[in-house]
Amino acid sequence: MMDEIASHIIDIVANSLAAHAHNITIAIEKDSARSLLILNIKDDGIGMDNEMTQKVQDPFFSTKTGRKVGLGIPLLKGTAETTGGSFFLTSEPGKGTEIRVLFHTSHPDLPPLGNIKDTILVLIVANPDVDFLFTYTDNGKQFVIDTKEIKELLGGVPINHPEVISFLTKYLDEHL
């Protein structure tokens, strides 16, 4: 069902949005020498206490009565561990949450990365009030997109303006 890493990213970011994050950092790093794919997502949302941090990693628990966090975290954790990788979740109430996931790229069960361009585009455009800092590192070669920088260049023009959407689509196509 969540058959791409890109889908997991959108899902984890949905948790950050539900936690009222204003700044979300997403970093993907491919390290072929160590056969690793590293995903890091950090937000400045409301955060969670220790008990909740444990609970959201449990597939048999979800805060779905309040519908805040779904099955996404246990699914991602399971996928990472299946590849022989690891999953770390740290959170602090009032500070935010950080998720760090390591996948072993040599494992046959590693899901495909999926469409990262579309993922980043829809997150940026559909959440104009949130700032995203996205970094993609492919064996040392780095691509960064920072919505704060883009908004500054745009002055008062919204980041979800049709002209900006078309620009971002082409920009991501060309650089990512």
């Binding site: 969540m2 890109a6 959108i10 779904g70 579309d118 559909a126 689509t169």
Partner: peptide, 23 residues
């Protein structure tokens, strides 16, 4: 864009809306 929405293809739907608005 919850977990079940994403799993069912919500990203592609959102992308298509965004793309059409731009285009």
């Amino acid at each position: 864009m919850g977990t079940s929405g994403i799993a069912a293809g919500a990203r592609e739907v959102l992308k298509t809306f965004v793309e059409e608005v731009g285009r």
